[in-house]
């Protein structure tokens, strides 16, 4: 509890610094805002497992940036070639991630990754829409699943 309070307080203080563009004259109001925000966040979203692992964050960001660049380039190339280049279809994927935040995070973020889009999630099955059924979309989805598993510290 104490650790989350400190971490969240530091995050909100950083946020204030960024929002005020580094000006020093607003810190009286800023400290009040940081305290209020930390209190509200602990009240509304008490720390519960699975926790985000901060040490895994840089690796995840690198993976995410690279993959979203690949996704953008791929979809831009497809858009230039028009519908003749598409072989769309649905693909089913059984999830290894635990329910809750990691699974929802996965389903949402798939839409930003190359070739895949989460469509429906029930129990442990996720239906994906893929732009080209010949591309290894499932393997990429598995890689993302593993990356999210590392980020939350859960074995996928």
């Amino acid at each position: 509890m104490k650790r989350s309070l400190l971490l969240r307080g530091a995050a909100f203080a950083l946020l204030w610094w960024v929002l005020s563009e580094g000006r020093g004259d607003g810190w009286l109001l800023g400290s009040a805002a940081v305290i209020a925000a930390s209190w509200a966040s602990l009240k509304l979203a008490p720390p519960a497992p699975p926790h985000l692992r901060l040490t895994a964050l840089p690796g995840f960001l690198r993976f995410f940036l690279w993959q979203s660049l690949a996704g953008g380039v791929q979809v831009a190339a497809l858009a230039c070639r028009g519908r003749a280049a598409l072989r769309p279809g649905f693909v089913e994927l059984s999830l290894a991630l635990p329910p809750g935040a990691p699974r929802l995070f996965f389903a949402g973020i798939l839409g930003l990754m190359p070739g895949t889009l989460g469509v429906a999630l029930d129990d442990a099955r996720l239906r994906l829409h893929v732009l080209d059924t010949r591309l290894p979309a499932l393997a990429e989805a598995r890689a993302l699943e593993a990356a999210i598993g590392r980020l939350f510290g859960v074995a996928p």
């Binding site: 953008g72 497809l78 769309p88 190359p114 070739g115």
Partner: peptide, 23 residues
Amino acid sequence: FAGTLGLLRFPDVYSRLHALAKA
């Protein structure tokens, strides 16, 4: 521009979502 192009040229709502969400 690629996103708009995809929106105009892709045939259904699912592929259009790919274009907008990624590009």
